[in-house]
Write a protein that binds this DNA or RNA. Sequence first.
DNA 1: CGCGTTTTTGAAGCCCCTCAAGTGTAGTGG
DNA 2: CCACTACACTTGAGGGGCTTCAAAAACGCG
Lengths: 258, 258
Amino acid sequence: LLIDKLIMPNALIRKLGSFELLSKAESQAVLAAYKNVRKIGPRKLIIQQGDKPHEAYVILEGIACRYKLLPEGTRQIMDFLIPGDLCDGHVFVIRKMDHSIGTISPCTVAYVDLPRLAKLIEEYPRISRALWWVSLIDEAVLREWIANVGRRPADKRIAHLLCELFMRLERIGQANGSSVEVPISQIDLADAVALSTVHTNRVLRSMAKKKLIAMQRGSITVKDVKTLMQIAEFDSSYLDMNGRKAKRPNRQNSRVSL
Amino acid sequence: LLIDKLIMPNALIRKLGSFELLSKAESQAVLAAYKNVRKIGPRKLIIQQGDKPHEAYVILEGIACRYKLLPEGTRQIMDFLIPGDLCDGHVFVIRKMDHSIGTISPCTVAYVDLPRLAKLIEEYPRISRALWWVSLIDEAVLREWIANVGRRPADKRIAHLLCELFMRLERIGQANGSSVEVPISQIDLADAVALSTVHTNRVLRSMAKKKLIAMQRGSITVKDVKTLMQIAEFDSSYLDMNGRKAKRPNRQNSRVSL
DNA sequence: CGCGTTTTTGAAGCCCCTCAAGTGTAGTGG
DNA sequence: CCACTACACTTGAGGGGCTTCAAAAACGCG
């Protein structure tokens, strides 16, 4: 379990490495920027809308989300954060967070030393560029969400989000064969697709009847991605527009300790 | 008019400069990367969803937009591009565009020499970082759009977008006192806020009756931002989360020729 | 002047929402 | 170990905000 924690940070390196070939020195520099690892309970606030961020962190285990609370009291989730995702590159630019970040399931989070991260960016142009590229991918995801929330009917909308989460979770090795358990509640899902929980439930229920998914309290398991992708007219290309094929994680780097 | 074209590229420098203090050498390097300037007619395609981009460009005059065409035939606009906006930083990462870019009004566009831009990023870490920061701001805008489209009723939704465009256009000097002409048709607006043109028209009409806006064929002028901001519960902080105050454009740099 | 496009208006209807109540499930403490 | 509580899920019923369809009016361009 401890070993997991030590190895997981490579998720970030793997991610950065899929855009830029990082040298051994660069990878080690990234790992050296990790400060400490913390466990956070479910549905806890990590950073709040309006706060000035003073830390950056990487999700190692669990799932979190970015969201906004609107004045009417409704919540809009704008992204799910899964292991390997860097939570705040924003740290340098931003005075005030425009959104909040909170955990959904219990999470393990690695905190990044800010001065050291700043130095990294200064010293290694490739790391800086890799971070930029990660942002560009994030933008593509956000654009797809706008189209999803704006123009798709409820069933396609939910199917589309499930497909995206399936792909992203599968990519980090969370798949059991062809099925993936997505550890979010119907309430979270509803706030991500901008539908009421009532209607979300009805759509999910009808999907479950067709064996496309299975429902548990607090999670949904995708069973039949293929037909979900047909329903959503899902095109995954927005998720992997990287310049080169993702490199297999480098065994040597995997052994670098914190 | 020609002078305008020569000076306008500084919009990008001004933008980058508001995040990073660029040295004179850096600013000149950016300007030197400009290749040629082209005029493009209204509602013309600049680059299409699925294409591999081979150029980057900066809007100098006019207004363009990013959008997706969904299989059902509907269009979702995900961003408006105004003078000073860099259209494809994506160029290096992306194999296939996840969205299209097209003009709305006639546009003047400066094309950027890609190899030279690549070299710039390699040589000047501050430029690379500034580009990253621009991306982060873009992300904040995209997140606000998700919340807008997802959770706000029609009147607030339209008011919110008009407020955003007011702010962005005012910032680049397109304001006439307290009113700004937003040069987009109701059809474009409807596709941006994810409403039907019919309903968009009715909402606009009622706003016009209250003297909040004025309507022309192909454009809307914002007359009373204050109450529009109240209606939308608009908080502009997501638009200017930059690390330092925007610097006044540097006169010396303004004179660097293409 | 004529034609394409944008804007406008009316009318009917549906998708999804809100309200409301009930069922199930996990965690808590006596 | 079992009430008790909290929260997630479920289901029904009614209503409303927006949509689609349809067609006319207004504008600007060649």
